[in-house]
Design a protein around this nucleic acid. Sequence first.
RNA 1: UCCUGCGUAGCUCAGUGGUAGAGCGGGUGACUGUUAAUCACUAGGUCGUUGGUUCGAAACCAACCGCAGGAGCCA
Length: 462
Amino acid sequence: MTTKRSMVKSLLAAEEASSQVRVQGWVRTKRDSKAFSFVEINDGSCLANIQVIVDATVPGYEASILPLRTGASLEVEGGLVESQGKGQKWEMVAKSVIVHGQADEDYPLQKKGHKAEFLRSIAHLRPRSNLFGCVFRVRSRLAYAVHQFFQQRDFVNVHTPIITASDCEGAGEMFQVKTVSGESGQEGQAKNGEEEFFGKPAFLTVSGQLEGETFACALSNIYTFGPTFRAENSHTTRHASEFWMIEPEMAFCDLEADMSLAEELVKYLVCDVLENCAEDLELFGKFVDKGLMERLHFVRDRSFERVTYTEAVDLLLASEQKFEFPVEYGANLQSEHERYLTEQHFKCPVTVYNYPKEIKPFYMRLNDDDKTVAAMDLLVPGIGEIVGGSQREERLEILRGNMEREGLAEEEYWWYVDLRRYGTVPHAGFGLGFERMLMFVTGVANIRDVIPFPRVPGWAEF
RNA sequence: UCCUGCGUAGCUCAGUGGUAGAGCGGGUGACUGUUAAUCACUAGGUCGUUGGUUCGAAACCAACCGCAGGAGCCA
C-alpha cells in the first residue's frame, strides 16, 4: 500500500513530525554533500519548496540522485522531521526516491532572476518559476473570488456566446470566424464556395454586454465571465488580443448603484486576495512592486473618490500639470490625464462619470441635461481604466435616434431594440478587465505576464 | 499605425575603430547540515541579417528582421 501523496504546502504547515509521507514534484535546486544531498522540491501548491535529505545509502543514489538537475521530476517517500538547519521548520528524510524524468542539461530556468521578456519565450516552463507560480495561483483565486462575489449576491452567471454575428456596438476591431479548406485546415485558406457557415459573417465576441442585457431583462441580476477578443493592433503593457472580462448587468438599476457595485467588487477582490494569497503577495511586494502592500491596504481601508467628467476636467485644468495632450471639455481623457487623477491628485481609485454623449457609444443613457450620458470609468493607480460601464438607454425612441446617428442598422439589432418594446426597464452594467485587476493586485506591470499563453499582435506561440 | 530604444555565449551583461570577455548556468573534480552553498579546472560565440564606409567594424552609416517601451483604441 503506497502512502498517500501530500502537497508541499500541507507538509510545511504540519503540526507534528510524521514517519511516512510522500511528495511528488520538480527539483528546484540540489546541493551535494559527501554522504548525502539536499534536494529542494516544489509542486506548485505554494511558493516555498520542501527540502529533502537524500542519504547516499538510499537505493539508486549514485545512479539517479547525484546526477539530478534543476527541473527533474521525482517522487519521494520518507519521514517528515524538524530541520536541523536554519531556514525551514520541516524537512524530509528520504527512504526511497523515484525519478520520473531527469531534466536535460539545457533546462533554461535558473535560480537567478530572468527578464520577463525571456520568460515569455518559454511560456511552457515559466509557471515553474517562483514569480509565475505566484501569478497563476493568484489568478485562480481571483477568478474564484469573482464568482463568489456575484453568487453571494444572487447574480446569475450567464455564458454569452464567443462566436457572434452582431458586429456589436463597434467596440473595436473584430476577428472574423471562417471555415478552412482541407482535412486539417493547415492551408488556412478560406473554404471554397460563397456560403457562410453561419449564414452570415461571424466574429469572435468583443463583449457579452448586449446578450447580457437580454438576460438581465429576465433574471434581473446577471454576470458574464469569459474570454473576449479584440483585433486592435495595440502594443502596450495593458492590451492583449485575447483577455477575460467580467460583465455584470442589473435590471432596475441606475448609474449610482452601478458605480457602487463596481467599487464594491474591486474592494472585495482586493480583500479576498489579501486574505487568501498572503505568501504570494509577499513575493510581489518584495520583488515586483515595493509599494504594492501599501496600495492594497489603502484600497481596502479607504473609500473611493467620485467625480463627474466636468469636475475632472476642471481639476486637470487647474492642476498646472504639463500634459503632452491638452485637456479640453468634450474630448476623451488621455491616459496621462487619468493617471494624474488617480495617482497624483487623489492617490486612490477614482470613478469618473457623466461623460459628454459625443464620445460615448449609442447604448449609453442620455442624462437630463441632454449633453452627457450616464457612463462611468473606474480608474486605479498604476493601471488607469480598470472598469468601464454605464446605465443603458432604455427609452426606445432615444435609442433609435442614437443608432441612426451612428449609422447602425436597426435590423441588425432588432432583438436588442425589442428589449425596449417589451417591458423596458432602467438597467446598468459594466465591464471589469480581469487581467487588469490581476495586474493591480499583483503589481505585475505587463498584461502578457498575467495570462498563461498571451496572444498579442504578432505573437500566438504555444 | 505612429514615435523612441535595444539585438554580443543557454541566461544577465561588459566591451565605442586594432581582431571576443565576466558572472550565472552546463561538464569534470574537491569540500561542506547545505539553503542564490563554496573552491579549482573546462567546454561553449557567423557579435540579429544584408549591404556600405575603412588598411582594419561587435563598434560608424543604411535598409530589413525581431523584441521592448510609449501613443491611439480600450478591459
